[in-house]
């Protein structure tokens, strides 16, 4: 069984981004980039499926600029077998990403597509669900635990208020939440080995997908700033402020 894992190159999770003065976006020049943390979790889960003998091959795909190749190399160093780079310098919205991935699925024939539940740049949380829709597949979003039995996949999902378990018909699209695993650090020998693993290069046009955006970005601005307030020196003073100054208790 083949598993396909789409991965995204994003701003490193520890970087606090700045909005450009002209309001056209955020400043990404000279900013540290990394694999989206949720994608790392998806790669880890796929590699574990392979290590458990459930999956036979893990293919990773990234849609982005040439530099997204580094993100694919990271995934290959974690244990994925080969990569596909769908090269574009355009900003590709989740709907167009899902259309490209649908075409990649048609070419590769995976039984499971494993993705992160959201990317920490656009915070859209859409791609997996959209891909499942376009393929007509079942979807297990915000996955906390996966168990494959025959041609079904039992998925425990993180939902408001607790956990929900569903049984999905394969093939399926799964999006990973934070607690399904802790991604490994690639070892140096595996990083070296990853350099020799194959990466195919494609373009959105190869898959016949129009990536023209549907949303026009009118303005990107700083959020309303919050000012720090005062320090109080005791719990009694705090309670007094909350009651008599803020009036919230």
């Amino acid at each position: 069984m083949k598993v396909l894992v789409p991965v995204k190159r994003v701003v490193d999770a520890n970087v606090k981004v700045r909005v450009k003065a002209d309001g056209t976006g955020v400043d990404l020049s000279n900013v540290k980039m990394a694999m989206n943390p949720f994608c790392e979790i998806a790669v880890e889960e796929a590699v574990r499926l392979k290590e458990a003998g459930t999956a036979s091959e893990v293919v990773v795909v990234s849609i982005g600029p040439q530099a997204a190749q580094e993100t694919l190399r990271t995934a290959l160093a974690m244990g994925a077998d080969r990569g596909i780079l769908v090269k574009t310098d355009a900003t590709v919205e989740p709907l167009a990403v899902a259309k490209i991935l649908k075409a990649v699925v048609a070419a590769e024939g995976p039984q499971i597509v494993l993705l992160g539940k959201q990317a920490i740049d656009d915070d859209a949380n859409q791609t997996g669900q959209m891909l499942a829709a376009l393929l007509g597949w079942s979807q297990g979003t915000f996955a906390f635990k996966l168990v494959k039995e025959g041609d079904t996949l039992t998925v425990t999902r993180e939902i408001d208020g607790g956990l929900q378990t569903v049984k999905l018909k394969l093939p399926a699209v799964i999006t990973t939440d934070l607690r399904i695993n802790t991604p490994r650090y690639a070892s140096l020998p595996n990083i070296m080995k990853a350099k020799k693993k194959p990466i195919d290069e494609k373009t959105p046009a190869d898959y016949g997908v129009d990536v023209a955006p549907r949303l026009a970005v009118l303005k990107v601005s700083e959020p309303a700033k919050r000012k720090g307030g005062v320090k109080v020196d005791s719990v009694a003073a705090l309670v007094d402020k909350l009651k008599n100054e803020a009036g919230v208790i």
Binding site: L215, L218, K219, S221
Partner: peptide, 13 residues
């Protein structure tokens, strides 16, 4: 976007 560190105004076509 970006964990609320920027606000994006969009128009849907």
């Amino acid at each position: 976007i970006y964990a609320g560190n920027a606000m994006m105004q969009v128009r849907s076509g």
